[in-house]
Amino acid sequence: MSPQPRLRSPLEQRRASRRPGVRRPCRSGVRVMAGHPSASAWISEHLGSPVVKEGFVGGSGWSSAYTVDTQDGRRFFVKTALGRDDSMFRGEALGLQAMYDTHSIRVPKVFHYGPLSPGPGRGGSFIVMEHLDLERGRLGMAELGRRLAAMHLATPKDPDAAAGRFGFPVDNTIGGTPQLNGWMDDWVAFFRDRRLMPQLKMTGDAKLMRQGEALCSRLGSLFEGVEVRPSVLHGDLWSGNIGAVGEEPAVFDPATYYGHHEAEFGMSWCAGFSPEFYRAYHELIPRAPGFEARADLYRLYHYLNHLNLFGDSYYGQCAAILGRLV
């Protein structure tokens, strides 16, 4: 496939918005309607105080984010998705709750998700959650490593995951891509059928499909001698989804499911994890044999997703990893 111009990835967009001298879409204090009045109406009615100000934070091809301030001085974080039902935000809400239930790392509390009031040809959904003050936070990489390991070691609250099954109660999304989460008893089969194969088919590329099918036929060899237990995973852990409230690490915007803890590092190529992070994490969860080969495997899933979302500039990484693993 020849290289084509591509859209900037969420990582590039967010980094650009943080560069000195680059203007954000909305200046502080300017009122911007949050895509639809339903979210502000819900906050005013159910959280006890009228909305007095809204500000646009940013967006992607599948949702837009806003801060919403109320008359009593509280601030909430709202996301809207025009033209989408509330299944995407339901998956996000349940994912945040699953991570919260581990009592290990800070996540925003969800107050509500649901459909937007019908509009002419629009429709859509919204989610209202706690606003985390990340501007003054100080993220310590070692503490993030310890907190993430504690989350992965926590006994799942979900009965299926606690019984050793892999998946999640609902399907969700990874970026804007549907992510299938139907429960399965075998991790290798789950990663093959729910993760790799859907992404490979989505590429429509015959060469990647041939290599991917060859990899899937020998996938079990990458897990020989390794015991895999279901851990609650953030599922999309990159620098744009990590912050700190004070000195407490926080994560948000998940694509949560119960899976192999090592799969959490599939986005490590744009997460900025330091040596101190890995040292702290592996003090609690030591590396198992074959870690590096499986790290390639888990990166492949996210590179394929980026290829499907953002275009051909990610083709080379996908082909290179498949070449190494096959």
Score class of each variant (00 low, 15 high):
residue 72 D to Q: 05
residue 54 E to M: 12
residue 15 R to P: 00
residue 24 R to W: 12
residue 62 W to R: 02
residue 37 P to D: 12
residue 29 G to K: 09
residue 14 R to E: 15
residue 25 P to K: 08
residue 44 S to G: 14
residue 74 R to C: 02
residue 26 C to P: 08
residue 69 D to F: 07
residue 103 H to R: 08
residue 14 R to A: 15
residue 68 V to W: 03
residue 8 R to V: 00
residue 63 S to K: 08
residue 99 M to S: 01
residue 103 H to W: 06
residue 20 P to K: 08
residue 24 R to V: 11
residue 70 T to I: 05
residue 75 R to I: 11
residue 104 S to R: 05
residue 105 I to S: 02
residue 16 A to F: 14
residue 67 T to C: 05
residue 88 M to A: 09
residue 66 Y to A: 05
residue 104 S to V: 01
residue 57 V to G: 07
residue 75 R to K: 12
residue 15 R to M: 15
residue 25 P to C: 10
residue 19 R to A: 12
residue 109 K to G: 09
residue 3 P to H: 13
residue 78 V to I: 01
residue 39 A to K: 09
residue 9 S to Y: 00
residue 43 I to E: 09
residue 32 V to C: 13
residue 38 S to R: 12
residue 97 Q to F: 02
residue 103 H to E: 07
residue 5 P to G: 05
residue 12 E to A: 11
residue 67 T to I: 06
residue 107 V to K: 02
residue 31 R to C: 11
residue 64 S to R: 14
residue 90 R to E: 13
residue 106 R to N: 08
residue 17 S to A: 15
residue 49 S to N: 07
residue 19 R to L: 14
residue 7 L to C: 00
residue 73 G to A: 02
residue 45 E to P: 04
residue 26 C to Y: 10
residue 28 S to D: 15
residue 86 D to R: 09
residue 7 L to Y: 03
residue 11 L to P: 00
residue 80 T to F: 03
residue 98 A to L: 07
residue 79 K to Q: 03
residue 106 R to Q: 15
residue 51 V to E: 07
residue 1 M to D: 03
residue 10 P to T: 01
residue 8 R to P: 00
residue 13 Q to L: 14
residue 27 R to S: 13
residue 97 Q to S: 10
residue 16 A to L: 15
residue 55 G to Y: 06
residue 85 D to V: 00
residue 104 S to T: 08
residue 83 G to K: 00
residue 30 V to D: 14
residue 111 F to P: 02
residue 42 W to F: 13
residue 49 S to C: 09
residue 67 T to K: 01
residue 107 V to C: 05
residue 16 A to E: 15
residue 69 D to N: 03
residue 56 F to M: 07
residue 74 R to Q: 13
residue 25 P to G: 15
residue 70 T to L: 02
residue 100 Y to L: 11
residue 6 R to N: 12
residue 93 A to M: 04
residue 85 D to T: 03
residue 94 L to Q: 14
residue 70 T to Y: 06
residue 39 A to E: 08
residue 59 G to L: 09
residue 22 V to I: 15
residue 13 Q to S: 06
residue 18 R to Y: 07
residue 66 Y to N: 06
residue 73 G to L: 08
residue 87 S to V: 01
residue 57 V to N: 04
residue 34 A to S: 14
residue 16 A to H: 14
residue 52 V to Y: 05
residue 66 Y to F: 15
residue 98 A to C: 06
residue 74 R to Y: 01
residue 68 V to D: 02
